[in-house]
């Protein structure tokens, strides 16, 4: 465990805390893409298959349970909670996210490090996470005004994977890890998709103005 990875995990956890804070306190999920949340549940389910078969540390197991529990809880809130589900921007959350799942499955079957169930599903989870934010970004572009907590949530979610890239650089240099194409490329694509959001988020933060993405 290095500082970059710890910071990355904490940033990821914080993004989920911010999202839960928004949903629970404001009792609203306006501006949040249910499709992105559902994709994240699939990412965690397919990535943490070794939860009960491989033990790395208390931290690793605890964090996997937290990420699985909160992501499933958020989908439940947005789908079934009587108040919250009324606030879901159903008509604007229109991205065809099933294509993302299909593409990721095909890519994982074609490009992987080993052809066994755990490895292919793990690879699938990396490809899917790289594009999971797309429905959310498309929804943000349609939202006239993006509330602060939603903007902070997306920013933290993007920042965590950027920190993971630094963690991979560290592991490559300091732990003389071999270069791993799949996580690296997936992580770079994932972070690159946030590029223009980062630009407008930081600009709105500097100019103290409301966050607005160009349509």
């Amino acid at each position: 465990m290095n500082l970059f990875r710890l910071l990355g995990d904490m940033t990821h956890l914080l993004s989920i805390v911010v999202l839960l804070l928004k949903i629970r306190t404001v009792k609203s999920c306006a501006g949040i893409s249910l499709k992105t949340q559902e994709l994240y549940v699939i990412v965690f389910l397919t990535r943490y298959l070794d939860l009960f078969t491989k033990y790395y540390s208390v931290y690793n197991t605890a964090m996997k349970l937290v990420f699985l529990g909160t992501s499933i809880g958020i989908v439940w809130y947005m789908r079934y909670h009587k108040v919250v589900k009324q606030t879901y921007s159903k008509d604007e959350d229109t991205f065809k996210h099933y294509f993302l799942i299909l593409l990721s499955i095909i890519l994982a079957l074609l490009i992987h490090r080993a052809f066994d169930v755990i490895e292919v599903l793990w690879t699938f989870s990396l490809y899917l996470e790289a594009v999971a934010i797309l429905p959310q970004l498309v929804l943000l572009q349609k939202s006239r005004n993006i509330d602060t907590l939603t903007g902070d949530y997306v920013f933290l979610l993007g920042a965590y994977r950027a920190l993971y890239i630094l963690n991979w650089v560290y592991r490559f240099l300091m732990e003389n890890h071999k270069f791993r194409w799949i996580p690296w490329i997936s992580g770079l694509v994932q972070t690159a998709l946030y590029a223009d959001f980062f630009y407008y988020y930081i600009k709105s933060w500097k100019n103290r103005e409301k966050l607005k993405l160009p349509a």
Partner: peptide, 10 residues
């Protein structure tokens, strides 16, 4: 071993 392939990460 899997750690080698970042399976020890979240």
């Amino acid at each position: 071993d899997y750690d080698e392939d970042f399976h020890d990460e979240l």
